[in-house]
Nucleic acid binder design. Structure first.
Length: 398
DNA sequence: GTTAGTTCAGTTGAAAGCAATATTATCGGCTAC
DNA sequence: AGCCGATAATATTGCTTTCAACTGAACTAACGA
């Protein structure tokens, strides 16, 4: 029987064979308990405990790669603490959020907003915002723990002046106290800071090591129980996700993404269970998305060079050299009307594409016949197709 | 057969031009004194 | 007068071009046994 598109919606509503609660696999989900971070949790708890009695905890600096549970644990513990006392208040800001908290003004405005003060998006002098913020803090009359997530991006954008001000804020407060928790995934971040900021911000430091495969497996298992219906998970699915993510700096976020996408793929195929094959496809998809994103993010010129290289390799030519790419590139430029760059620059662009792992090139000397880069394209077929499609969209190929 | 020299087809590095972006300086309007 | 936001002026940055030196093995030719 031919099924119409309406059936797809109907199916989606009525039957949910795979997922019970997909949110459990999202990276914002805060689970009941957290695995394999006992040491870090104890450390954090010990540091912020004074806040329960209304004292000021030390400032903390938290380091760790992406997907090592930094944000999760900080949010988890501080929430837990806030439940147990009315003497403390937690403010959480992700400094990377565009147009919300990526400048001094916006950050302060956002904080004040969290404390119930409304501030216009622009217009007020920065000092005024500071005043409002301090006033709001005072009105709170509690120990305020300020979590600055992805603090490195804030500092990179706006300098460490804000941090300096924030660390000194305490002196202007009489009824309230404030302590800072900075979260960064760049370990060398603190080196570039003003020494005064550095010393006062990193009174305590906590490092989150990457998860190993076994730990990832526990985490996945815990989430999988919540996320999936009984019996849909095939043998070895979780182990495979864990192993793949462990290879890549023990990133739990990636592990969860793999599992989620594997589930989505199985669901889309109307399968009743998830198999390790789905995990493989999920990895392909993640990989593919990554590469395609990278290509799309490249400047036009770089894409044109890639288009030229692809065209050459499609035409079956072996041993593609810089000169070949350059002359095809000239055609590409002419037909798509973009400005032509010099051979010199193309040479560099090819080297860049090589760095990105999109193409493979190496310098070889061909003796009497000079010296050049030999270029090969090493993308899988479906990745290549997607890239070609995207290049066609921008009229570089066709 | 060896050795020294050539040659090709780019590679690589430095310096400088140029445009876009970010930072700083300046100006006019507004409030507070 | 002092301060704000807006605008103009300046500095920084990133990309690109120009110039020029450099590369390294295939190829050649001269050398010596």
């Amino acid at each position: 029987m031919q099924r119409t598109w309406k059936d797809i919606f109907k199916d989606y509503n009525t039957q949910q064979p795979i997922f019970k609660n997909k949110d459990a696999l999202s990276d914002r989900y805060v689970p009941e308990t957290v695995c394999h971070r006992d040491e870090q949790m104890k450390h954090v708890a010990k540091i912020i405990a004074p806040a329960i009695k209304g004292d000021k905890p030390s400032n903390v600096f938290v380091y760790g790669n992406t997907g090592t549970g930094k944000s999760l644990i900080l949010v988890y513990i501080t929430n837990e603490m806030a439940r147990n006392t009315d003497k403390a208040r937690v403010l959480y800001v992700n400094c990377k959020m565009k147009r919300v908290s990526d400048t001094e003004y916006r950050l302060l405005a956002e904080l004040a907003r969290q404390l119930g003060r409304d501030l216009p998006a622009t217009g007020l002098p920065t000092v005024e915002v500071y005043k409002t913020f301090i006033e709001a803090l005072e009105a709170e009359g509690k120990t305020v723990i300020l979590i600055l997530d992805e603090i490195d991006s804030l500092v990179k954008k706006t300098g460490d002046g804000i941090l300096y001000n924030l660390t000194r804020l305490d002196q202007d407060l009489s009824k309230s106290k404030i302590s800072l928790i900075g979260i960064s995934n760049d370990t060398s971040f603190a080196d570039g800071l003003d020494p005064r900021v550095k010393s006062s911000l990193s009174e305590e430091e906590i490092i989150f090591p990457p998860y190993n495969a076994a730990q990832l497996q526990d985490i996945l298992l815990q989430r999988a129980l919540l996320a999936f219906n009984d019996g849909v998970l095939g043998e070895g699915v979780i182990a495979k996700c864990a192993a793949l993510a462990a290879q890549e700096h023990g990133d739990a976020r990636k592990a969860l993404a793999l599992l989620r996408i594997a589930g989505e793929l199985a669901e889309r195929e109307n399968l009743l269970g998830i198999t390790t094959a789905d995990v493989d496809s999920a990895e392909d998809k993640l990989d593919l998305d990554r590469v395609v994103e990278v290509v799309k993010a490249q400047p036009k010129q770089s894409q044109a060079v890639l288009a030229a290289a692809i065209r050459l390799s499609e035409s079956g030519q072996k041993n593609i050299q810089t000169g070949d790419v350059f002359s095809v590139y000239e055609d590409v430029c002419k037909s798509s009307g973009i400005k032509m760059l010099t051979q010199r620059r193309i040479s560099d662009l090819i080297a860049e594409l090589d760095m990105l792992g999109i193409i493979n090139s190496r310098v070889i000397s061909k003796g009497r016949y000079g010296r050049t880069r030999e270029i090969r394209i090493l993308l899988g077929k479906n990745v290549l197709d997607k890239i070609k499609a995207s290049l066609k969209d921008s009229y570089l190929l066709g």
